[in-house]
């Protein structure tokens, strides 16, 4: 059985890319193995842990549940892209200062998911932050520090800092 492939064209972190991919390859394997974007991680490959969370057409998706071929024509943003554009620079700084990660394996997915909350125009309670992040598994921190870092970032943005 030879591998069935398909050519796809998509934008990844603002760069237009055309590649031929196996049709069964999921999007995060494509990003990691074909493009060397190893910031997105695989923790379960069945859509539960959230380590592979990336942005596709401005929505946060589980990159392990989407095939690369389904991203044909899509705009994909990974943690590397969010870092380059400085969109979440404050959130990243607060994660570091608050030590809101230990092993760091969940961190890219956690940041991509938390970034959705930064667009808010009104304060968000800790419970609401917890609920928003409740699809991202972190085995190390116990979440408290992550909630602190996200809360600080939101509050500072609302204060215009």
């Amino acid at each position: 059985m030879s591998e069935i492939t398909m050519e796809i064209t998509l934008t990844v972190n603002s760069e237009k890319i055309t590649k031929t991919v196996p049709v069964r390859q999921h999007l995060v394997d494509f990003l990691r193995m074909e493009l060397g974007l190893t910031g997105s991680h695989l923790g379960c490959e069945h859509g539960v842990c959230g380590a592979c969370s990336i942005r596709v057409n401005n929505a946060v998706v589980r990159g392990c549940l989407m095939l690369a071929v389904q991203a044909d024509g899509a705009d994909v943003v990974t943690v590397e892209g969010l870092t380059e554009t400085k969109e979440i620079e404050d959130l990243q700084k607060n994660f570091v200062e608050r030590n809101a990660m230990q092993c760091g394996y969940c961190t890219p997915g956690m940041l991509v998911t938390a970034a959705e909350l930064l667009r808010t125009t009104k304060p968000i309670s800790r419970d609401d932050i917890r609920n928003h992040l409740s699809g991202n598994f972190c085995r190390c921190t116990g979440y408290h520090a992550i909630i602190d870092a996200v809360e600080t970032t939101i509050n500072n943005r609302l204060k215009g800092r």
């Binding site: 997105s40 870092t83 200062e97 030590n99 990660m101 760091g104």
Partner: peptide, 15 residues
């Protein structure tokens, strides 16, 4: 702060 944290937030962890 930890240096490893600075890499982790940028997706520069190396597992």
């Amino acid at each position: 702060s930890r240096d490893a944290a600075k890499r982790a937030v940028a997706g520069r962890g190396r597992y």
